[in-house]
Each structure stands twice: as C-alpha cells, then as structure tokens.
Design a protein around this nucleic acid. Structure first.
Lengths: 120, 120
DNA sequence: TTGACATATTCCCATATGGGTATATATTTT
DNA sequence: AAAATATATACCCATATGGGAATATGTCAA
C-alpha cells in the first residue's frame, strides 16, 4: 500500500508545513480564504485544497457569510497530538533520564551487556 | 510536487502509525529489531525500513551489540512537536475560546443565551 | 572456510500527493 | 438578465510511499 491519506487523521494532516501555517493563522481569529491567500505566498486553489484536508479531519471549521467563507482552527483537534507527544515528556525533561533508563534497560532486556557504550 | 518525504522532518515521520508505535515501545527501553518484529505484527523488512526513517530524522538511536542492533527512542526529537501543539493549548484549555470569542463579537447583550452553539 | 543468525537494502507496484492551470459553483451587484 | 467576486473542484504529472518478496550485508559459531 501507499502512504496513508492526509485526511486519515490529524497526524497526517499536520505533516504538511503549509497546513500547520494555516492552523496557526486561523487559531487566532477566523479568516476568509482570500486573506489566507494573501498572508501565505501560494495561490488560491492550493489554499482551498489544504483547507479541505484540514476540514476533513476536523481541524478547522467553516462559517459562510455571503460569498466569503470564514475558516477557523478547531484547537480541540490538536489535543490528541499534544497528548501523544506529552507521553514522551518525562523522557526528555530531566537529562538524567537517558542514563537512568539505560541502566534500567540493561537489567531487563540485555543480560549480556558487556558491550561498550557505543552511542554514536 | 509530491508530498514531502517522510524523512523531511519529525512531523512527517510520526504521521505513520507504525512508527508512532515503534517510538512508544522504544522510549521505555531499547530493543533489537527482532523484538520489534515480534511485538508488532509486521515483517522484518518493514520494521527495518520504519526504523530507517526514524533514524534519519533523529527520532531513534542505534547501538550495536554483536549481530543485534538495539534501537531506542530519542525523546528530544519529539520535543518540537510537543512545543508546536502546545501553542494551541490555551485555545482549548478552558473551552473558553469558541464560546468566549463568540460572545465577544456579539457585543449586544443577550441575557438568555445559554442555547447551544449554532455552529455546524 | 561454511553455515546460521540478525538486520538492511533492492526491486516492483498501486496509491495519494501537492502544485499549476483551467473550470465549476455559489453569491452579490449592476 | 449578465458580470463581478469568492471559493471549490477537476485534471495532469512528477514523486514518494509502504508492503511484499527476494537478496545483500554483517556477525558469530563450528
């Protein structure tokens, strides 16, 4: 199979830098597509397509006003990503983690650990 | 252009569910490829290829011991993702974003506005 | 050396991509 | 009505993908 669709989940949707930029802009205040086209350096169809992806995964919401469509970030959609990354926080927070975990891993899964500390 | 390479940054690398699974396993303790193959339900070449991607973006480190290679998550590499998602935290934290902003825009007094949001 | 074991790489292929360009749809204005 | 405006979609295409299968590389044991 090929790579998962960008619309398969928030992780895939957010992998694209332009879409992260859109989310950052639209979390402050809602904006119409035209304003996004002006703010970023890309043409309108690209913006619309990126918004479509974000919409499909629930990362943005739309509101129509006349011929304008106002988009805004749905921050709740980012929460799962935040929580996933958060589960790694304790492993970088203290620098002692590395050394400590290493000793831990040695006793558990690496009985014959006379090997040198080749960290690379 | 096509989609950015999975090795272009951590965002793209973690978009793949299997790779997130690998990172979760390898953050607890280092493991050889064989153990990962057994733990996950996929064949060895796939595991090796996923590890290659994670390695290219610095999300895992390798240590060789004989014919085994022990991989372990480099939690520091997840930090940028955490910080990016964190910049959205204040917008979901107290649910105040949506409702509050909306009420703000509606300077008109609306005493009995406990009704549900008309959004979507 | 040969053989067994562990991991990495190469090949093929169906699929989704994102940018560009053109066109379609929707809404307001004249 | 038509024209102007705002946004969305369709199309083409070069590119990277991830899985499977086969093969290559590396390391230890006999």
């Amino acid at each position: 199979m090929a790579r998962a669709a960008t619309t398969s989940d928030a992780f895939n949707a957010v992998a694209e830098p332009r879409r992260r930029e859109l989310l950052a802009l639209l979390v402050v205040r809602e904006l119409p597509v035209g304003a996004l086209v002006a703010a970023m350096g890309i043409d309108q169809p690209s913006v619309s397509k990126h918004l479509r992806v974000l919409r499909d995964v629930g990362l943005v919401r739309v509101r129509r006003n006349g011929r304008h469509k106002f988009y805004r970030t749905n921050a709740e959609g980012i929460r799962p990503l935040h929580e996933w990354t958060e589960s790694f926080e304790r492993y970088w927070s203290h620098q002692l983690s590395r050394v400590k975990e290493r000793a831990e891993a040695r006793t558990k899964s690496n009985p014959d650990s006379t090997a040198k500390e080749t960290e690379e």
